[in-house]
Design a protein around this nucleic acid. Structure first.
Lengths: 344, 344
DNA sequence: CTGAAAGCGCTTACAG
DNA sequence: CTGAAAGCGCTTACAG
């Protein structure tokens, strides 16, 4: 009924060499309290035996598991896998495992998810919060990935600047009438993006916001956004706050016989996988997920390893200082609006 | 330097009530060796103190961590998040946590990922293997989610039957000339899907396979599949082995002025998020990820909990018997080919 | 029905 | 430079 691991443990190595397991531990951890030649010998036999330390044993002793929790609103939503991948990669490089928890739709489940992670003794938690969640007093270091306009400390992409980048580019192509497309006026991320977009609409330009209604979101076939009318009304730039909405707009316009990008431009956000594959490709904006993940993980690790020194257990700690990472424009549609539209 | 947990531990509860920690343990685990009234009292104070057991302590003692590893080829690929979500949900319901490992592109990294999980003492591993991987002797219970035509035991959707469902439906709409679109002739999943499709092409019908080349996959703008020519050649059904390829085909056709679904039909596979949002919606086929996850997790849990009885550590065990779960057709395009095409 | 003891594998003061 | 001992929190035979 021993731990079902391949290998040996410290005391086996110790017995084999006639030393104490403390010495083996010290030699392997390289804390320098063991002579060079003994260290060498110990390392060699450890390698021979294929020894890997029991992280469970270590965790019980040190109080740290080397595992972080990642709480996501909805893994199946195409926005989050990129973040999950980046977090997993950054955590893994920092020597941490990542336990996932999907909050699947409700704030209540999100709280459950966080509690389950804490019960599993994670050393820290990365949360991509659901709309409107305040991360209450969690007894564990936390890093929040959200929008810069969320109150409190967060790590995030600079969604405002991303919105600016898109509209600046469209303005430079000659566009003046913008239809901004979102679906959730309560979302900080969406508001940041739209705010940035609006801030770049020139004096002689105009922007409307189209908020897609909830019942239009879970639509069957035939639930259109009425974009053809918008084209007739002179809008030439359809600026979505996500690639998914952009895709919806693009197919609706194409289906209606509107030529993209000759007649109108369609832009998205996030550079999801299909953006580069469809015809025409989607001009979009990409967050630097690797850097966001690195910042979040680094902050978390700093707090965790600082705690190791102190006798006081970590209280509710928000690990990262506010930091926002620039987004990058990806241009795939280069034509401007047709002359007649420019006159109108 | 104690474990940084909110709460109390067994011996605190024991001390408070003047009983032994063994009794507390037995009372809480409900193994029935404690009188009803004492059990009640112990439970009450445990609840008062907000006691949650240390899973690390338990793991060290029992040799089981209550954590499963999930190895995915590429989380950012839109196929996998659905599976990840279903696995997390099923595992969570079974009382297990899920540690993720992304094998990010190479078989070597997949092996690393598996090893990292094993070093973290996971009780079992769910692998969605990279192409062509043989799951070698892993010293840990394993469930593989793949295609039914993969050798060895796997849990999977019945991709062949899914392919049949799509083509049967298209045949019933009147289609006879099918262009099947895939990108990887080495993939068991793709071959199953295409095999099923071909098996349903009627005597008077015809199917070609278009394998998208690798350099066409990572294309910039303007790399087209030449589908317009296929339309001219009389193909009316564009049957992709994934929604992503279907989307690519749909936008290329729309851009070329081909009316979908009036002139030709486009179908996909997997019912990814955009399938229901674009215009026209994509007819596709959905795997029952919940059931696949349940089967995989149940099989794994059975092996793990059986091992608990035996003194022999778990060898390489493939947990699940071969089982394949039917896929479900989702119809979003209902028109057949135009009469002229039916004549041709 | 209840308790005392051992031990999972590790690391860390402390003593030599 | 090296070792003996304690202890992280739990569960499980075993004894009473």
């Amino acid at each position: 009924m021993a731990i079902a691991r391949t290998g040996s443990n410290l005391s086996q190595i110790a017995a084999l060499l006639g030393v104490s397991s403390a010495t083996v531990s010290n030699a392997l951890s390289g804390k320098g309290r063991v002579s060079a030649e003994l260290t060498e010998k110990i390392r060699a036999t450890a390698a021979d035996l294929g020894y890997t330390p029991s992280l469970t044993g270590r965790a019980l002793r040190t109080g740290r598991t080397g595992v972080l929790g990642l709480v996501l609103p909805d893994i199946a939503n195409p926005l989050f896998p990129q973040i999950a991948q980046a977090i997993e990669y950054a955590a893994s490089n920092a020597g941490y495992g990542v336990l996932i928890a999907d909050s699947r739709g409700s704030v209540a489940l999100q709280t459950d998810a966080i509690n389950r992670l804490i019960e599993r003794d994670v050393d820290g938690i990365i949360i991509v919060p659901r709309l409107g969640t305040r991360i209450a007093d969690i007894d564990c270091p936390v890093a929040v990935i959200d929008s810069p306009s969320t109150p409190g400390n967060t790590v995030s992409a600079d969604h405002w600047q991303g919105g600016q980048a898109v509209v600046e580019h469209l303005v430079s192509l000659g566009h003046r009438k913008f239809l901004l497309i979102g679906n959730n006026p309560a979302s900080n991320v969406q508001n940041d993006r739209i705010g940035g977009m609006k801030s770049c609409v020139p004096e002689d330009g105009h922007a409307d916001v189209l908020w897609i209604e909830r019942h239009e979101q879970s639509h069957g076939k035939g639930s259109l956004l009425g974009l053809q009318k918008k084209v007739e009304a002179g809008f030439t730039a359809f600026v979505a706050i996500s690639d998914l909405h952009a895709l919806r707009a693009l197919t609706e316009l194409q289906r209606a016989g509107v030529a993209v990008p000759e007649d109108v431009s369609v832009t998205g956000f996030d550079d999801l996988v299909w953006s580069s594959v469809i015809t025409p490709g989607l001009t979009t904006v990409r967050m630097n997920t690797a850097e966001i993940a690195d910042v979040a993980i680094a902050a978390l690790v700093r707090v965790i390893e600082a705690d190791a020194g102190s006798a006081i257990p970590a209280g509710p700690v928000v690990a990262a200082k506010r930091s926002s990472v620039p987004m990058q424009l990806v241009v795939r549609q280069t034509s401007g609006p047709p002359p007649k539209a420019q006159i109108a």
